[in-house]
Amino acid sequence: MPEASTPDFHGAFCSALAGRPESLGPWLPAAGGDGLSVYRNTILKGAIDVLAAAYGTVARVVGEDWLRAAAADYVRERPPTRPSMLDYGADFPEWLAAFPPARDTPYLGGVALLDRLWNRAYFAADAEAITASAVTRLSPDELGATTARLNPSAGLAAFDQTIASLWLAQRREGDFRGFELQAQPEYALVVRVGGDVELHRLGPGGYGFLRACEAGETLLRAAERALDAEPQADLEALVALCIQVGAFSALVSASDQGSPE
């Protein structure tokens, strides 16, 4: 009988889970391998269930079985590291985009990215949205000295195909059959206001504007970025839309920058 067995046992058990049941010899001399499979299956299922729930739109596009098989590969490569798995699989979209069996469906990584942004928004910190009047009362000088902080739930994505529309069709109608991807750029903002996570399609100007805000540029510089991306953009309408959908949680004047919250 092994003495002071606890320290060695855990390493041996991990080896056994990884396919070397003989590691458990001192503790499991008799046949008992069925039990090891139960632990292996439960561990794998637990991680796959998290991914299947987090990437529900991907599952509806490719089928639950396909997603679970792909997720099993992902779990083996990148197992969970922490007991709270709300964030597990954050890099699954990039992994899926490079997953050889997904080569025929190159839009899957984009669909997964939108699921990821949705999930991230769902668990992000709560924040109030700013009102339109907070921006319209700023003087031109102030616009050059004010940054707009994105809502903590906000996430941005740009695609060279109509993947945001595909994702919305699947989520809203529960069906994407008949939907044809167009080779046409799309830009998306995913943000949560109160309890509701929404995806908003943006023009290139709106996307450039929000990316600049996200990078900490002033509203004036962000407006220039918007016009760089979309010279004919209606700036007033674009800013109004961003505010209306709750993209911003605070305005910060340059003089406040760097001071702690």
Partner: peptide, 19 residues
């Protein structure tokens, strides 16, 4: 939890004095 990996299950151990 062990070695930076979380295994979503409740794993057994020998109920020793050290444990």
């Amino acid at each position: 939890q062990r070695g930076g990996v979380y295994r979503p299950d409740l794993l057994p151990f020998p109920r020793t004095r050290a444990a």
